[in-house]
């Protein structure tokens, strides 16, 4: 009887330790590895895509008669083509860190890599 209780106690201790380990790993993963691309059109979320090594695709976003083509390649993303006059969004180039943004003001489009950006509350630019 006494032995069974010991085993139960040991089992519970092991479970407790495991649950903490799993939780910790989960949180770490959330903070450091989980980055995603969020596409905003007219200030509203238009689409989201997770960024991981295997992905390589293009998303075409149409705003009225205009368009932006977004290219996702692994953990990096850029606005590959657009029909806006000055192509500032295309010139921004590849984004690959959380917090980075490319904006197309004429087409009212914004792409952001979301995720923990090195622990800042905001960025002055």
């Amino acid at each position: 009887m006494r032995n069974i209780n010991k085993w139960i106690a040991a089992g519970l201790v092991a479970l407790t330790v495991m649950s903490y380990i799993i939780l910790h790993a989960y949180q770490q993963n959330q903070i450091y590895n989980h980055t995603k691309l969020v596409i905003y059109r007219d200030g509203e979320i238009y689409d989201e895509a997770s960024l991981s090594k295997e992905v390589h695709k293009e998303i075409t976003v149409r705003t009225g008669d205009h368009f932006n083509i977004i290219e996702i390649k692994g953990e990096a993303v850029r606005i590959k083509e657009a029909d806006c006059p000055r192509k500032i969004c295309v010139d921004t180039g590849w984004l690959n860190k959380p917090g980075q943004i490319a904006v197309c003001i004429p087409n009212r489009l914004k792409i952001v890599i979301e995720g923990q950006s090195g622990n800042v509350d905001d960025i002055a630019y």
Partner: peptide, 29 residues
């Protein structure tokens, strides 16, 4: 990009404001 930080964070912890890297995409500090 003009930041007005009002007060502090909870418990009086200061805000952490990134300064844009002028040679990298917006959002890179």
């Amino acid at each position: 990009g003009n930041i007005i930080a009002v007060g502090t964070k909870e418990d009086g912890i200061p805000w952490r404001i990134g300064i844009q890297n002028p040679m990298a995409p917006r959002g890179t500090f």
